[in-house]
Structures are given as C-alpha cells and as structure tokens.
Simulated scan of single mutants.
Amino acid sequence: MKYYKILKIGFDMNCYCGNDKTYTDCCEVFHLNQGKTKTAEQLMRSRYSAFVLANGDYLMQTHHRSTRPISEKKDIVKWTKSVQWIKLEIIETSKGIEKDNKGTVTFIAYFFENGKADVIHEKSAFVKENNKWYYLGYAKK
C-alpha cells in the first residue's frame, strides 16, 4: 500500500505536506531517518505525510512516549486509510526551531470522509529530547 501511494504522487509533484519539494526530497527523508527533524514544523509536516501514507510505525516513533497511544495504532492506521487526504495548512508556529526544546504548531488538515469534507484544526505541542522532536498532543491554552 505504501508503495502505491508513493508512486501516485509522482516524482515531480510536491510533497504531501505542501512543501515545494518532492516527497523523496522532503518527508521521505524524515520517514527513513526515524523522525530526526530540525524543527517542530518539519515533524508536523512529516507526520501529516505519514497519515497520508498510513505509516503507523512513524506516527508511533514520533509520538512522545508519555502520550503515545500504542494500543490505538491499528485503529489509527485503519482510519488514515479510510479517508482521502486533501492538504495540510500550517497556520502558526511558536518556537520549535533548532535551538528550542519546546514548540507549538497550529494547523488545519483537510480530508474527505464518507463523501464529506472535514478538517482537523489543532494547536499541537512538541518537545525535543536527546536532539529529537516528538509530538506531545494538543497544546494547552
């Protein structure tokens, strides 16, 4: 399934995450290096691409151990395969650059589910430990 979806995007199309680079030059790099991103936004974008590709292993690897829903992995993968992903829009980032240890990314992920358009609008919290960014969950207000 992953192979089919990668071929579907094509070599000259933009990455799933919305960057101008191809998937091969963008999020695939992070998928292959187990999420070693430089910024929280890069991790957010690579996680979105992992949702598009139903890459549950990557989603678990990049989810902080304190909030990681390991028992829900199969359900998450099943759901990601059941929807048609449209696009990711980054609304705002706060901190989360190379020198930081914490950051937030506010985004909207657009998708079709059961023939209807829907969105996930979230302000996500990220933390960097041992020089690696992790998704924590919803950011507290």
Rank of each mutant, 00 (worst) to 15 (best):
G115S: 01
T39P: 04
G103P: 04
T93G: 09
V83R: 03
I76P: 03
F111E: 06
K116A: 13
N55M: 14
N114D: 10
L88A: 07
K99L: 07
A54C: 10
F30K: 02
Y3V: 05
S94W: 02
I6T: 05
N33G: 02
N131Y: 14
I76R: 05
Y58H: 07
I76G: 01
N130I: 04
Q61E: 14
E92G: 05
M60D: 03
Y4W: 11
V52S: 06
T37V: 04
K2C: 01
I9N: 11
H64C: 07
S46D: 01
T67C: 09
Y48S: 03
Y138R: 08
K73I: 09
N101Q: 07
A125V: 00
S82E: 14
A139N: 07
I9P: 00
A50K: 08
E122N: 08
K87D: 09
G18T: 03
R45S: 11
M44D: 06
D25E: 15
I86Q: 10
T93L: 14
F51Q: 13
E113G: 08
G115Y: 03
T104H: 09
E129K: 07
D20C: 00
N19Q: 10
Y135P: 02
D12R: 11
M13W: 01
A109P: 01
A117G: 03
A109N: 07
C27T: 02
V52E: 04
